[in-house]
Nucleic acid binder design. Structure first.
Lengths: 224, 224
DNA sequence: TAGATTGTTAATCGATTAACAATC
DNA sequence: TAGATTGTTAATCGATTAACAATC
């Protein structure tokens, strides 16, 4: 997958995925007025082992002080730097169904440095409709949006149009895609896709739920 | 984390997470009328290496035939059995903000064996409101719902009430939780929590996006 | 100095991959 | 039998963890 490739020689993908969690915890400490913390404190706040915390943070640089700990503000700054939160990233959402509308209205993005600059849909009946303060536009506007700085595309369409939308995003020059459609996207090298699949998450929970309910038959034969 | 614990001696969590993907691909093959496939075919359809496909499937049992491949319908049946898709799982969504409403209206769950049986909110002004064919209820109804079979709780509240809602779900007897709130939940052993964090996903994309834009300075000193 | 805590090394664990014997 | 493909073994890779020297 393109993600691993992009992580080559850099910070491990698993570490990157934990950085936002650390940052969130640090913001919490800062709000409480805590100015210095240990890896143990950060571990407790994030549910990660302290050795892992230290290992993760050491990937970014040496921002702690032995015998003392980490300066909350400085560490938060360094992590936000690593995550590219120094400026706002323009985001476009494609697909104005229930999920797309909910994402468009979601307040949480702005505080994390993401600015929703466009809402798009392939259905021209929706064009011009006003949602969350933005006017719905056709996907053919994508090249123009990329020229204006669009960096990240969010796909919230049904499965059957997701690949087409993905191709249009890629052709327009978008290289980071968050895919909510329950389908695998094929993209060229250099494009990073992350997938969020709501049904899959529930299916994984159902797997565990089932394990609990049934007697622990490790020999699964007798079932069917 | 509770998930790893529950996977002890069983199918590895990473494998479980791929099963829904295989199942989706198999359903696709079945629709096209394909009755038999090789691990190579399934690998191509899911973007996974064929060796991994075989290893994953062998965790469930020996459902292939050497020299021939896998029977599409039989394999799909076995996977859906493992995932607990033999019956519907009752799901409740707590938090009727934008995201909660979108999830309530989402069509994709039903086809995967999930039935949304209740919509809850702590704000009593919303009680009685009708959303997606269901009436919004107070969270104090949870014990009653569990008695009626409720198995999975979805938390779609703001961060600051998520832990409280989680506690109420757990107290009522729910042991599988899908958390959309951007906060870490503390739950007792035996309760499985999966977290979907939209901002975190975007932050991970921003990390990669930033790496692309900047010159590949592997010596990060010169930046700050 | 004594106590605390980082950053890093080495050990462990688990997941991925390649390779191939088993077998249709 | 010859060809194909699984299921599994062994090798590799990467991530986690424990432990501790460095150092405030």
């Amino acid at each position: 997958m393109s993600i691993d490739q992009s992580a080559r020689r850099g910070i491990p993908e698993v570490t990157v995925a934990r950085l936002p969690e650390y940052l969130r915890a640090l913001r919490g400490f800062a709000e409480q007025g805590t100015t210095s913390i240990s890896s143990e404190d950060l571990a407790a706040a994030t549910g990660v082992r302290s050795a892992k915390v230290r290992k993760d943070l050491s990937q970014l640089g040496s921002y702690g002080v032995r015998g003392v700990g980490y300066d909350v503000d400085h560490l938060a700054y360094q992590i936000s730097l690593a995550l590219g939160q120094t400026h706002d990233w323009p985001v476009a959402i494609v697909g104005m169904g229930n999920l797309g509308r909910a994402l468009a209205a979601y307040r949480g993005f702005a505080t994390k440095g993401f600015r929703i600059v466009a809402l798009l849909d392939q259905n021209e009946l929706l064009h011009g409709e006003r949602i969350a303060g933005l006017v719905v536009r056709p996907v053919t506007d994508l090249p123009e949006l990329v020229l204006e700085g669009l960096a990240i595309g969010v796909i919230a369409t049904p499965a059957d149009s997701a690949q087409d939308v993905s191709d249009r995003l890629v052709d327009a020059g978008v290289r980071s895609i968050l895919n909510f459609a329950p389908t695998m996207l094929t993209v060229p090298d250099g494009v990073v896709v992350r997938k969020v699949d709501l049904s899959t998450e529930l299916q994984i929970l159902a797997f565990h739920e089932q394990r609990k309910v049934e007697p622990p038959t490790h020999l699964q034969e007798a079932r069917a």
